[in-house]
Amino acid sequence: MIKPSVLLFALLMSAPAFYRLLGNEVDLIQVLIRFLVAVPIAAVLMAGLRFVLAGYRKADDEPPGAVMVPEPYDRPEPGKTS
């Protein structure tokens, strides 16, 4: 199912063609073809945007206010193996 945000973005992408339709500069078939081409392009762009923004969401399993505490790292002395 195509999301409404994708259709709205495709409509915005093809808005100049709809504007030219009002001035009788292009045919209705050309405007509809441009809109149909804009739909998959808008879907790919919106999916990419959702993918990028998903990394900034908070994890649900992390309790609110959890603090990460660093642990000390004991480095071995040079020349000695453990």
Rank of each mutant, 00 (worst) to 15 (best):
G79W: 05
A66P: 03
A47I: 05
A66L: 04
K80C: 00
Y56F: 14
A10C: 02
Q30A: 13
V39R: 02
A59D: 12
G79P: 01
L12I: 01
Q30F: 01
G23F: 06
A54E: 08
R57W: 07
E71A: 11
A47N: 14
Y73K: 02
P4S: 07
V44N: 01
Y19E: 08
V26K: 06
L32H: 08
R50E: 14
P40F: 02
M68Q: 04
D27I: 06
F18Y: 15
A38D: 08
Y19D: 09
S14W: 06
Y19A: 15
R20V: 04
T81R: 03
R57Y: 13
G48W: 11
D74T: 12
Y19S: 07
G48L: 15
D27V: 01
M46T: 05
E71M: 09
D74H: 11
V44Q: 08
D27W: 00
R50Q: 11
E25W: 07
D60H: 06
F9A: 08
V37E: 02
I2N: 14
Y19G: 15
I29Y: 14
I29T: 12
G23K: 15
R50D: 13
I41T: 04
F35C: 10
A15R: 04
L22H: 03
S5A: 08
V31W: 02
T81S: 06
A54Y: 04
E77G: 05
A66W: 11
V39K: 04
I41S: 01
S82V: 13
L7R: 13
L36P: 04
A17F: 09
P70Y: 15
Y56T: 04
A47H: 08
L28N: 00
A15Q: 09
V52K: 09
V67M: 05
K3M: 07
L28A: 01
M46F: 11
P72V: 15
L49A: 13
